[in-house]
Amino acid sequence: MLLVRNAYIIFLKDFHLEFRSRYALNAIFLFAITTLTAISFSIGPLRLKSEILSPLLWIILFFSAMSGLSHIFVREEEQQTADTLRLVTSANAVFLGKWIFNMVLLFSLELFILPIYLAMLGVSVGNFRVFLFIILLGSFGLASVATLIAAIISQASAKGALFAVLSFPISLPLLISGIHGTRLALDGGTLAECLPDLQILFSFSIVIITLSLLLFEFIWRK
């Protein structure tokens, strides 16, 4: 209970800080809008197939996440508040608080970017419920990977490059299932057809969160 309470307090603090400084918010939203606009201009009036539309969506989501989600730990290290935090609560409360924050940030991005993506690229979704389900579960996993890697790279010198380089191989199963599931959903695939992808996305997220809770103490306490 104490863990959840402290995680919530840390989440609220980060939420407050973010809406005052807008470090991650600006990075993630501007990246997504710029990429989407560039894609839209480059394809012109062409109607793309789901085989192309699905990876494009995940590329936008993955790199937008990479551009902003590392701030959650990098900011604590750069502004020398990480030690202050280490002295007041447990490592897992810090991880959970930061993970919730990254998830909220990623979900907000999707809420904003998905309607624009559907409108700008003229996408028709065959099975909207399954499509949303895939995106939600994928983001759940993406936020988990990003939070863990952010904690690792926050203590390195080449933070920006390392974040994407380390996150990509770990996120690969998630991206493959996310892209495949999204393609099926765009083509009108049923829940039963998308179930293997949903299962992989769900299991992947659970494994990453469990590993993070086991390992984070070692990462956080140097």
């Binding site: 800080l17 202050t84 609560t89």
Partner: peptide, 29 residues
């Protein structure tokens, strides 16, 4: 951690929060 207070040059507070918000965060946690 509950019994320790530390002041040092490498230990910073949250600059984008007010004094009250900093106090409130550390008291609640």
């Amino acid at each position: 951690y509950a019994r320790m207070g530390l002041v040092g040059p490498y230990l910073q507070l949250y600059n984008y929060l007010t004094a009250f918000e900093n106090y409130s965060f550390f008291a609640r946690i």
